[in-house]
Nucleic acid binder design. Structure first.
Lengths: 213, 213
DNA sequence: TTATAAAAAGTGGTCAGACCACTTTTTGAC
DNA sequence: GTCAAAAAGTGGTCTGACCACTTTTTATAA
C-alpha cells in the first residue's frame, strides 16, 4: 500500500485536484474557475473544504477571488504572498540573502548558456536592447534578466526564476541608472561575442550596484 | 480613511490576528495554539473562518495540526513553500532534461562556492568521503551531492535541489561505479584545494557518466 | 429599436450546528 | 499504584442558512 499518500490531508488533495482540473480544462491565467458550489459537487466534498483549499491557494497568490464575481486563476503570483512571507518566514536576513543568491544562480547559468551558444548570441533581441539603451538612455532591469532567462531555453529554470523574482525582484523592476547602463551594455556585448567570463564579470558588477539600491 | 485596508479580506485579518496572538502569548515553536473553537470565540468570528486562516498557514508549513491533538506552531524554517510551488511548477513541466539541467545548475554553483571558501574546503567531511571510498571502494552518489549542497550554505538552493533530486535523482541514489570513483575523488580533491575549474570539470565528467547509466 | 432601470440569478463571505474520528484527560475498579 | 474504561477535548467534514456583491436577464419607458 502507498502509506505515504493514504494518510494525506484531504484539503491538500483538493489542492491537487484543483491543479488537475485547471490543467484538464486548460484554464489560462486570468480566466474564471468553477464556482465553489460547483467545485464541491464535482469533487464530491463539502463547500467548506473547497473553501479551505481555495483560501490556501489565495494566500499563495495562485488564485484571486472577487466577492460576487467568482474565482480566477491569478496572472501574477505576488500580492499577499510577499507580505505573508516577510511576516513569518523572511524575517531574518539570511533567508532574504538566500533568495537573492538563488535567483542569481539561475541568472548566471543563463548567461553562461547564452555565451556558449552561437545561435543564442546572434538573436536580434540583444541589439534591440542596445537601441533602446541608446535612444531612451535606460531600460527595465527585470526585462533584461527575463529575456536572458527565456533565451537560455530551460523552461523549468525560468519558472523557478519567476517565483524568486516575485519575492526578491522589486529592486529590479525599475529603469536602470547611468552606472548600470554601462554594465548592462558590457554584459550584453560580451554575451554576444561569447566572452563568458567577461559577461559574468559585468553581471556581478551590475548586481553589486543593485545591492546598494 | 485608509480605504486600502478597510476592505481587506477578513481571513487575512485573522492571519494577522493569529500572528499577534502568537506574539502576545509568547507561543514558541512546537508549542500548542488555542483550539479552533476557542480561537473563533476569542476573535469573534466563526470557526470556519478560523479554519480557512489556519489551513492557509498549514499549507505554508507555518503550523502543524494533529487530528484530535491540536494545532501547533511549526518549528522555524519548516515551511514547505518550495514544496508547494514545485508541485505546481514540476507538475506541468514534463521535460526530464530541464529537471536534470536545473538540478545540475544548483550542484555546480555549490561546487563553486565551496571551491572559493577556505572554511568549507577544509571540512573533515570531505576526508571522510575519501576514507569511505578507499575502504569500501564505492560511495552513494546522492550522499556526496547532498553534502555538497548542504555545505554550500544556501538553504533555499538546498530545498529546491531536494525537490529536483526527488524527481530526477533516482539514477543517483546508488553506489558509484569504478569509473565514477576517480571522477568523484578528483572533484573532491580539487574542491579541497580550491581548484574551481578542475572541480567543475571532474563534476561534468561524472555527470556524463551518470547520463549513460 | 434602443436605453435604462428593476428583478433575478449567480457567487463569494460568514456563521451556526451537527456528527465523526482521533487524542488527551479524567475516572473508577482492581 | 495500575490500568482499562469513560469522558472531555480537538481537529475534520458536511449541511444549511443568510448576507453582500456582481452578473445576467427581464421588463419598462423613451
Amino acid at each position: 500500500m502507498d502509506k505515504k499518500t493514504e494518510q494525506k490531508k484531504v484539503f491538500l488533495e483538493i489542492v491537487q485536484q484543483l491543479r488537475q482540473l485547471i490543467k484538464m480544462e486548460k484554464i489560462q491565467a486570468g480566466e474564471k474557475l468553477p464556482s465553489e458550489r460547483v467545485l464541491s459537487e464535482r469533487l464530491g466534498v463539502g463547500r467548506s473544504s473547497v473553501r479551505e483549499a481555495l483560501r490556501s491557494l489565495e494566500l499563495l497568490g495562485l488564485i484571486e477571488t472577487r466577492h460576487g464575481g467568482g474565482t480566477f486563476l491569478a496572472s501574477t503570483h505576488k500580492h499577499q504572498l510577499v507580505e505573508i512571507l516577510s511576516m513569518f518566514i523572511l524575517e531574518d536576513e539570511k533567508s532574504k540573502k538566500d533568495v537573492e543568491l538563488t535567483r542569481q544562480i539561475h541568472e548566471k547559468e543563463a548567461i553562461r548558456v547564452i555565451s556558449c551558444t552561437e545561435t543564442l548570441q546572434t538573436l536580434p533581441v540583444w541589439d534591440s536592447f542596445f537601441v533602446k539603451l541608446e535612444i531612451e538612455g535606460t531600460i527595465n532591469c527585470l526585462d533584461v534578466l527575463r529575456e536572458i532567462l527565456i533565451t537560455s531555453g530551460n523552461r523549468l529554470s525560468l519558472k523557478i526564476w519567476f517565483q524568486l523574482a516575485a519575492y526578491d525582484g522589486d529592486r529590479l523592476n525599475r529603469n536602470s541608472t547611468e552606472d548600470e547602463k554601462l554594465q548592462i551594455q558590457t554584459m550584453l556585448k560580451s554575451m554576444q561575442l561569447g566572452y563568458e567570463r567577461e559577461a559574468l564579470k559585468a553581471y556581478e558588477q551590475w548586481m553589486k550596484n543593485v545591492q546598494s539600491i
